[in-house]
């Protein structure tokens, strides 16, 4: 495992910890999109189907369990927790996320590395992950007062995607036959979606003002 990959996984982990910290300790999910969180829960459920079938390493197994458990925990908090759910900004979280699940499933059925259940689910999860951040980005645009933890959550999530691209470039030059169009194209699309956010995040950080995304 190269340093980019490890750094990517760690920023992914940090993003989840930041979000859980906000939800668990502040008991608030203001500015957090439940739609995006539900999509991530679905992404991990579909991708990690191989958890008990295909063993890679202890590291992989533990990380998969962490991402599965944390995504479902966050959804549970936002839907069921007495205090947290009242802070959910339902009116502004209106992205119709169900409508992107079906196209991703169709794409997974059409474009996959092998036409087996697990491979189709894997491709589906890659396509879905690429667009899962959209409801969150839309909600941020509509949020007047983006708190630091929410902004940091999205920043770390975006950083994870950027680092994964560096990881692929590194692997491409160091491993023979390392070509993966499906995840590369989906990964690049996913990273580009953060472009706008990164621009305004860095701007707000440089000028030391609160983050605000233009609608």
């Amino acid at each position: 495992m190269n340093l980019f990959r490890l750094a990517g996984d760690m920023t992914h982990l940090v993003s989840v910890v930041v979000l859980l910290l906000k939800i668990h300790t502040i008991k608030s999910c203001a500015g957090v999109s439940l739609k995006t969180q539900e999509l991530y829960a679905l992404v991990f459920a579909a991708r990690y189907l191989d958890l008990f079938v295909h063993f890679v390493s202890l590291y992989n197994t533990v990380m998969k369990l962490v991402f599965l458990a944390s995504s479902f925990t966050i959804v549970w908090y936002m839907r069921r927790h007495k205090i947290v759910r009242r802070t959910y900004d339902k009116e502004h979280d209106t992205f119709r996320h169900h409508f992107i699940v079906l196209p991703c499933l169709v794409l997974g059925l059409l474009l996959n590395e092998k036409f087996t259940f697990r491979e189709v689910m894997w491709a589906f999860s890659i396509y879905l992950e690429a667009v899962a951040i959209l409801p969150q980005l839309v909600l941020l645009q509509r949020t007047r007062n983006i708190d630091n933890l929410t902004a940091q959550y999205v920043f770390f999530l975006g950083a994870y995607r950027v680092l994964y691209i560096f990881n692929w470039i590194y692997r491409y030059f160091t491993e023979p036959h390392f070509v993966h169009w499906i995840s590369w194209i989906a990964g690049i699309v996913q990273t580009l979606l953060y472009g706008d956010f990164f621009y305004y995040y860095i701007l707000s950080w440089k000028n030391n003002v609160k983050l605000e995304l233009p609608a």
Partner: peptide, 10 residues
């Protein structure tokens, strides 16, 4: 195989 070595990513 080229298909399986990416499955070591998360």
């Amino acid at each position: 195989s080229s298909g399986s070595n990416l499955k070591d990513e998360l």
